[in-house]
Protein backbone atom coordinates (compact mmCIF):
# COMPACT_ATOMS: atom_id res chain seq x y z
CA UNK A 1 0.00 0.00 0.00
CA UNK A 2 2.65 2.46 1.07
CA UNK A 3 5.04 1.37 -1.65
CA UNK A 4 2.46 2.27 -4.25
CA UNK A 5 2.28 5.80 -2.91
CA UNK A 6 6.07 6.12 -2.90
CA UNK A 7 6.18 4.89 -6.48
CA UNK A 8 3.45 7.33 -7.45
CA UNK A 9 5.22 10.19 -5.68
CA UNK A 10 8.35 9.56 -7.72
CA UNK A 11 7.04 8.52 -11.08
CA UNK A 12 4.20 11.01 -11.51
CA UNK A 13 6.50 14.07 -11.28
CA UNK A 14 8.97 12.37 -13.61
CA UNK A 15 6.16 11.67 -16.02
CA UNK A 16 5.02 15.27 -15.84
CA UNK A 17 8.52 16.52 -16.57
CA UNK A 18 8.92 14.20 -19.53
CA UNK A 19 5.50 15.18 -20.84
CA UNK A 20 6.40 18.87 -20.56
CA UNK A 21 9.86 18.94 -22.11
CA UNK A 22 10.17 18.85 -25.87
CA UNK A 23 11.35 15.60 -27.32
CA UNK A 24 15.01 15.27 -28.07
CA UNK A 25 15.19 14.76 -31.78
CA UNK A 26 18.82 15.64 -32.36
CA UNK A 27 20.58 12.80 -33.99
CA UNK A 28 23.94 11.99 -32.60
CA UNK A 29 25.28 10.82 -35.87
CA UNK A 30 28.80 9.65 -35.99
CA UNK A 31 30.37 7.77 -38.82
CA UNK A 32 33.47 5.90 -37.80
CA UNK A 33 36.57 6.48 -39.90
CA UNK A 34 36.24 2.91 -41.12
CA UNK A 35 32.68 3.34 -42.27
CA UNK A 36 33.58 6.50 -44.13
CA UNK A 37 36.50 4.74 -45.75
CA UNK A 38 34.22 1.93 -46.85
CA UNK A 39 31.88 4.37 -48.51
CA UNK A 40 34.73 6.23 -50.17
CA UNK A 41 36.12 2.95 -51.44
CA UNK A 42 32.78 1.86 -52.80
CA UNK A 43 32.41 5.20 -54.56
CA UNK A 44 28.64 5.01 -54.24
CA UNK A 45 28.55 8.78 -53.94
CA UNK A 46 29.58 9.27 -57.56
CA UNK A 47 27.20 9.93 -60.42
CA UNK A 48 28.35 9.87 -64.01
CA UNK A 49 27.89 13.12 -65.96
CA UNK A 50 25.66 11.15 -68.32
CA UNK A 51 23.28 10.36 -65.49
CA UNK A 52 23.21 13.99 -64.41
CA UNK A 53 22.63 15.15 -67.99
CA UNK A 54 19.82 12.68 -68.38
CA UNK A 55 18.09 13.93 -65.26
CA UNK A 56 18.56 17.53 -66.34
CA UNK A 57 17.00 16.89 -69.72
CA UNK A 58 14.11 15.01 -68.22
CA UNK A 59 13.67 17.90 -65.81
CA UNK A 60 13.76 15.48 -62.94
CA UNK A 61 12.29 17.51 -60.07
CA UNK A 62 14.34 15.64 -57.50
CA UNK A 63 17.65 16.78 -58.92
CA UNK A 64 19.38 19.62 -57.12
CA UNK A 65 22.75 20.61 -58.55
CA UNK A 66 25.04 22.34 -56.10
CA UNK A 67 28.06 24.26 -57.34
CA UNK A 68 30.74 24.23 -54.66
CA UNK A 69 33.13 26.57 -56.48
CA UNK A 70 33.38 30.17 -55.38
CA UNK A 71 30.86 32.78 -56.46
CA UNK A 72 33.02 34.29 -59.26
CA UNK A 73 33.36 31.06 -61.08
CA UNK A 74 29.71 30.30 -60.56
CA UNK A 75 28.79 33.64 -62.16
CA UNK A 76 30.84 32.86 -65.24
CA UNK A 77 29.53 29.41 -65.87
CA UNK A 78 27.24 27.02 -64.10
CA UNK A 79 24.96 24.17 -64.91
CA UNK A 80 21.26 24.90 -65.38
CA UNK A 81 19.23 25.24 -62.19
CA UNK A 82 22.21 24.85 -59.94
CA UNK A 83 22.69 26.74 -56.71
CA UNK A 84 25.98 28.00 -55.40
CA UNK A 85 27.28 26.82 -52.04
CA UNK A 86 31.03 27.53 -51.97
CA UNK A 87 32.95 24.79 -50.21
CA UNK A 88 34.41 27.17 -47.62
CA UNK A 89 30.92 28.21 -46.69
CA UNK A 90 29.33 24.78 -46.53
CA UNK A 91 28.96 24.67 -42.75
CA UNK A 92 27.03 27.91 -42.73
CA UNK A 93 23.68 27.08 -41.08
CA UNK A 94 22.00 28.98 -43.89
CA UNK A 95 22.63 26.04 -46.22
CA UNK A 96 21.63 23.34 -43.86
CA UNK A 97 18.14 22.97 -45.23
CA UNK A 98 19.60 22.34 -48.67
CA UNK A 99 22.21 19.76 -47.76
CA UNK A 100 20.37 17.98 -44.98
CA UNK A 101 17.08 16.82 -46.41
CA UNK A 102 15.57 13.67 -47.79
CA UNK A 103 13.48 14.93 -50.66
CA UNK A 104 15.94 15.93 -53.32
CA UNK A 105 18.95 14.30 -54.78
CA UNK A 106 21.81 16.72 -54.27
CA UNK A 107 24.69 16.55 -56.71
CA UNK A 108 27.83 18.49 -55.83
CA UNK A 109 30.09 19.58 -58.64
CA UNK A 110 33.26 21.60 -58.98
CA UNK A 111 35.82 21.92 -61.73
CA UNK A 112 37.32 18.54 -61.00
CA UNK A 113 36.12 15.87 -58.62
CA UNK A 114 38.16 16.90 -55.63
CA UNK A 115 36.29 19.85 -54.14
CA UNK A 116 32.91 18.33 -54.71
CA UNK A 117 34.04 15.15 -53.06
CA UNK A 118 35.32 17.12 -50.08
CA UNK A 119 31.91 18.70 -49.75
CA UNK A 120 30.36 15.25 -49.81
CA UNK A 121 32.75 13.94 -47.15
CA UNK A 122 31.86 16.80 -44.83
CA UNK A 123 28.13 16.36 -45.24
CA UNK A 124 28.42 12.61 -44.96
CA UNK A 125 30.32 12.88 -41.71
CA UNK A 126 27.51 15.04 -40.42
CA UNK A 127 25.19 12.19 -41.23
CA UNK A 128 23.34 13.84 -44.09
CA UNK A 129 21.93 11.62 -46.78
CA UNK A 130 21.06 12.06 -50.42
CA UNK A 131 24.20 13.93 -51.36
CA UNK A 132 26.18 12.84 -54.38
CA UNK A 133 29.16 13.94 -56.43
CA UNK A 134 29.35 14.40 -60.17
CA UNK A 135 32.33 12.40 -61.26
CA UNK A 136 34.98 14.36 -63.13
CA UNK A 137 33.34 17.69 -62.46
CA UNK A 138 32.82 20.39 -65.04
CA UNK A 139 36.01 19.58 -66.91
CA UNK A 140 34.80 16.13 -67.68
CA UNK A 141 31.30 17.45 -68.30
CA UNK A 142 32.50 19.82 -71.00
CA UNK A 143 34.65 17.13 -72.49
CA UNK A 144 31.98 14.46 -72.68
CA UNK A 145 28.63 16.18 -72.83
CA UNK A 146 29.42 19.41 -74.60
CA UNK A 147 32.05 18.14 -77.01
CA UNK A 148 31.66 14.43 -77.25
CA UNK A 149 34.22 12.61 -79.29
CA UNK A 150 32.74 10.65 -82.10
CA UNK A 151 33.58 7.00 -81.71
CA UNK A 152 34.95 5.02 -84.62
CA UNK A 153 32.20 3.47 -86.66
CA UNK A 154 33.50 0.07 -85.68
CA UNK A 155 32.82 0.76 -82.01
CA UNK A 156 30.27 -1.32 -80.19
CA UNK A 157 26.69 -0.13 -80.35
CA UNK A 158 26.68 1.12 -76.78
CA UNK A 159 29.49 3.49 -77.55
CA UNK A 160 27.58 4.94 -80.46
CA UNK A 161 24.39 5.19 -78.48
CA UNK A 162 26.28 6.96 -75.72
CA UNK A 163 27.75 9.36 -78.25
CA UNK A 164 24.35 10.12 -79.71
CA UNK A 165 22.96 10.70 -76.27
CA UNK A 166 25.77 13.04 -75.34
CA UNK A 167 25.43 14.97 -78.55
CA UNK A 168 21.71 15.35 -78.01
CA UNK A 169 22.19 16.25 -74.38
CA UNK A 170 24.88 18.77 -75.21
CA UNK A 171 22.58 20.40 -77.71
CA UNK A 172 19.66 20.44 -75.35
CA UNK A 173 21.78 21.92 -72.62
CA UNK A 174 23.21 24.67 -74.77
CA UNK A 175 26.37 23.19 -76.18
CA UNK A 176 27.52 23.32 -79.79
CA UNK A 177 24.49 23.09 -82.02
CA UNK A 178 24.72 19.89 -83.92
CA UNK A 179 22.20 18.30 -86.18
CA UNK A 180 20.91 15.61 -83.95
CA UNK A 181 20.25 12.31 -85.49
CA UNK A 182 17.04 10.66 -84.43
CA UNK A 183 18.34 10.37 -80.97
CA UNK A 184 18.42 6.94 -79.47
CA UNK A 185 18.49 8.55 -76.13
CA UNK A 186 18.89 5.77 -73.72
CA UNK A 187 16.81 5.94 -70.66
CA UNK A 188 19.48 5.55 -68.12
CA UNK A 189 18.26 3.84 -65.10
CA UNK A 190 17.64 6.18 -62.24
CA UNK A 191 20.63 6.80 -60.09
CA UNK A 192 20.46 4.92 -56.88
CA UNK A 193 18.66 6.91 -54.24
CA UNK A 194 18.52 3.76 -52.24
CA UNK A 195 19.26 4.32 -48.61
CA UNK A 196 22.71 3.29 -47.74
CA UNK A 197 23.30 0.85 -45.00
CA UNK A 198 22.62 2.74 -41.83
CA UNK A 199 25.03 1.68 -39.17
CA UNK A 200 24.26 -1.68 -37.72
CA UNK A 201 20.81 -3.06 -37.88
CA UNK A 202 19.26 -3.71 -34.53
CA UNK A 203 17.45 -6.98 -34.38
CA UNK A 204 14.84 -7.67 -31.85
CA UNK A 205 11.62 -9.31 -30.96
CA UNK A 206 11.08 -12.78 -29.78
Amino acid sequence: MKARLILAAIIIPLGMIIAAVPENTTKQFRLTANELLEEVKDGTQFLQPDEVADMLIQKDPTLQLIDVRDADQYEKFSLPNSINIPLVDILNPEWKEYINQDVKLNVFYSNGTKNANEAWMITRQLGFENNYVMLGGLNYWVETIMNPEKPASTSPDEEIAKYNFRKGAGAALGGAAVNTQPSTMKKSSKPPISKRKKKKKVQGGC
Partner: peptide
Protein backbone atom coordinates in the same frame (compact mmCIF):
# COMPACT_ATOMS: atom_id res chain seq x y z
CA UNK B 1 1.02 13.61 -29.60
CA UNK B 2 4.42 13.46 -27.93
CA UNK B 3 5.97 10.37 -26.42
CA UNK B 4 6.26 12.16 -23.11
CA UNK B 5 2.57 12.89 -22.84
CA UNK B 6 1.61 9.33 -23.79
CA UNK B 7 4.03 8.00 -21.20
CA UNK B 8 2.52 10.24 -18.56
CA UNK B 9 -0.97 8.99 -19.40
CA UNK B 10 0.20 5.39 -19.26
CA UNK B 11 1.70 6.05 -15.84
CA UNK B 12 -1.67 7.29 -14.62
CA UNK B 13 -3.46 4.26 -16.08
CA UNK B 14 -0.90 1.92 -14.51
CA UNK B 15 -1.23 3.51 -11.08
CA UNK B 16 -5.00 3.19 -11.38
CA UNK B 17 -4.60 -0.51 -12.14
CA UNK B 18 -2.33 -0.96 -9.12
CA UNK B 19 -5.00 0.54 -6.95
CA UNK B 20 -7.59 -1.86 -8.36
CA UNK B 21 -5.11 -4.71 -7.93
CA UNK B 22 -4.57 -4.00 -4.25
Amino acid sequence: TSRGLITFLIILVALGMFWVGE
